[in-house]
Write a protein that binds this DNA or RNA. Structure first.
Lengths: 124, 124
DNA sequence: ATATTATAGACTGTATTTGTCTTTAATTAT
DNA sequence: ATAATTAAAGACAAATACAGTCTATAATAT
């Protein structure tokens, strides 16, 4: 079990947006060179961030991407959830009301709570 | 990112061992029927638990598997680590001393600390 | 010796992750 | 209107990880 690379990219992308806050739209090509990944792959990650309402996109000339929320309102968890989804890390299909699952979910919650508190802005 | 099924099996297996503590060795076949998985697959999981020193195995007639540690000394984390390994969930190869990685590891630590406190014995 | 038990390793199928490539849709400038 | 620019969507492919099977080997007790 590991976080995906896409999550790492997404966090770095969001950190970059937070740094650039207020500036013009960032478009795909420059972002891709800055992040050192292919434009098409980056595009898929950005689309996920758009769907999660963390950034917004506008097509056409002078279009691109920009923050959709205040930089003080974007937690690590928001970004992670946008990429990894919101399902629990552990699920037991053997028992229902499984005691093991209960503990595993409580444990996950400790991590999640921390990631909800921690803002991208905290580390830029 | 999800925990593997093997981890779920391992946790249930260890819970069963803790319940049966003091009784005779459990051998593969009965364990497999009880857990409802194939003996060969179960065997691979058990071998990982043996290597992690959570259980011990003895071959031959009347052999099988039994706990190696006191039931009050086996945490959820011990079992999870035996299956999932001990690497961090998040690693950033882009930056060294990455601030994002720092936060992600602190977050993981919250979960891990909880799982280290919580014993299998607590839920049997 | 033989039966019984675990261990190891090769192997297969499936799912997930990490990408690429091509087409389509939306917007702006002329 | 049209052309240029930009993002979105979806099909595809390669690589990795996961889940599971099968067979052969090693260790132990009787």
């Amino acid at each position: 079990m590991k976080y995906t690379k896409a999550t790492n990219y997404a966090l770095h992308i969001m950190a970059y947006f937070v740094k650039q806050e207020g500036k013009d739209n960032l478009s795909l090509q420059p972002l891709a060179s800055h992040m050192n990944i292919s434009p098409t792959y980056l595009s898929k990650i950005l689309t996920q961030l758009v769907k999660a309402n963390l950034i917004q996109s506008t097509p056409g000339v002078n279009g691109g991407y920009s923050l959709r929320k205040l930089k003080t309102e974007i937690s690590f968890y928001d970004v992670i959830q946008a990429i990894e989804g919101s399902g629990a890390l552990f699920t037991c299909e053997m028992d229902h009301a499984c005691h093991i699952e209960r503990v595993m979910r409580d444990a996950e919650e400790k991590m999640v709570n921390y990631l909800k508190e921690k803002l991208i802005y905290d580390i830029v």
